[in-house]
Computed example of a mutant assay.
Amino acid sequence: MKSPLLTLPGAVPAEGVDEGVAAHYGDLFREQRALADGTGFVDLSHRGVVTVSGPERLGWLHLLLTQHVQELPPHQATEALILSANGHIEHALYLVDDGETTWAHVEPGTQEALVAYLESMKFFYRVEVADRTEDIVVLHLPAGSITEAPAGVAVRETPYGRDLFLPRDGLEEYARTAGPAAGLLAYEALRVEQHRPRLGFETDHRTIPHELGWIGSAVHLQKGCYRGQETVARVQNLGKPPRRLVFLHLDGSEVHLPVPGTELRLADDSPDGRKIGFITTSVRHHELGPVALALVKRNVPVDAPLLAGDTAAAQETVVEP
């Protein structure tokens, strides 16, 4: 659905999976600086919203998710994954429980498949699953924001800011009180700076949680069984993930950013040298310049200079090899 905030002055629509909200409002770096300073907001109304209610919701979700949510306190934010039987990441959920309902926002377009899976696992449990994307939107306030959330809405309070679950018909009115709007490009630049992976960007059909540093933040290693747990336990205790997430500083003299999927190779290799990874997200940061997240093979030396296509890149370790 197209956000009503696309009518704000300077709004330029995002493309691809983020279609429906603004990529920016005319000044990318000003918008980034505002978010970094704790002012403004980001329209995330294109994301999917799913709720689970009923007296057994937390115990039931605990059986399905990688995170320990059996006794999740009200208003405490958490993240969780749903894995395939082989341990590959299928869904990423950003959760909060308000004492009566568990709220989750998910990647745009994934909510229908998520709801279908959850419905298939209800069995005799007293839970109700609902796709609330049509009537509830997500709006992000940056860390340090003093803007108050409307009374009665669910709020995810995280170190990176607050995610508000607002009625869709109240989005325009609330936005008028929330400060300057910042687009998805500003939000993504800060996400990359914070080394936070995103489903469908840093993941592919064979990604496991260890590769992206989701162990701990989205995967609890001391909880009971869930689908894909065998792979998580085996890699944690006996093996090593085949790939690892890295943060890249890109050559700032290049006019164009290397696009997601751009192949990485060692800088001292020949032009047709061995592929050792690929760019997953690339952005322009207001302080760091052009930077990116990438997946590389685990055994790539952590200090090795790389080439992203023809662009020089220096690594920062996110996931230890």
Rank of each mutant, 00 (worst) to 15 (best):
M1I: 10
L8I: 00
P9R: 09
A23I: 02
E31T: 04
A34D: 13
L35C: 01
G40T: 01
G40C: 00
V42T: 15
L44R: 10
T51A: 03
T51R: 03
E56S: 13
R57S: 06
W60E: 12
L63W: 08
L65V: 07
Q67V: 00
H68C: 05
V69N: 08
L72C: 00
P74Q: 06
P74T: 04
Q76W: 08
A77R: 02
A80I: 12
S84H: 05
N86Y: 04
G87N: 03
H88F: 14
E90N: 13
V96W: 04
V96A: 02
V96I: 09
A104E: 03
A104H: 02
H105T: 10
P108K: 03
P108T: 04
Q111P: 07
Q111S: 11
E112A: 14
A113V: 08
Y117I: 03
Y117Q: 13
M121T: 13
F123S: 07
F124Y: 09
F124L: 15
E128Y: 03
R132C: 11
R132H: 12
R132P: 02
T133W: 12
T133P: 01
T133F: 14
E134P: 08
E134G: 13
V137K: 13
V138H: 05
L141K: 13
I146F: 03
I146H: 10
I146N: 08
A154E: 01
R156Y: 03
R162G: 06
R162W: 04
P167Q: 15
R168V: 05
D169V: 13
E172K: 14
E173F: 07
R176G: 15
R176W: 09
T177E: 14
P180E: 01
P180T: 11
A181R: 14
A182M: 08
L184M: 14
Y187G: 00
V192W: 09
L199N: 00
G200V: 07
F201C: 06
F201H: 06
E202I: 15
D204A: 03
D204R: 00
H205C: 04
I208F: 01
P209D: 03
H210L: 05
H210Y: 03
S217N: 06
V219L: 05
R227C: 06
R227I: 11
V232L: 14
A233Q: 06
Q236T: 15
L238S: 04
G239W: 12
L245F: 00
L248Q: 02
G252N: 13
G252K: 14
G252H: 14
A267D: 06
D268M: 10
D268R: 13
G273P: 12
G273W: 13
H285W: 07
A292N: 02
A292D: 02
L306V: 10
V318L: 04
V318H: 01
V319M: 08
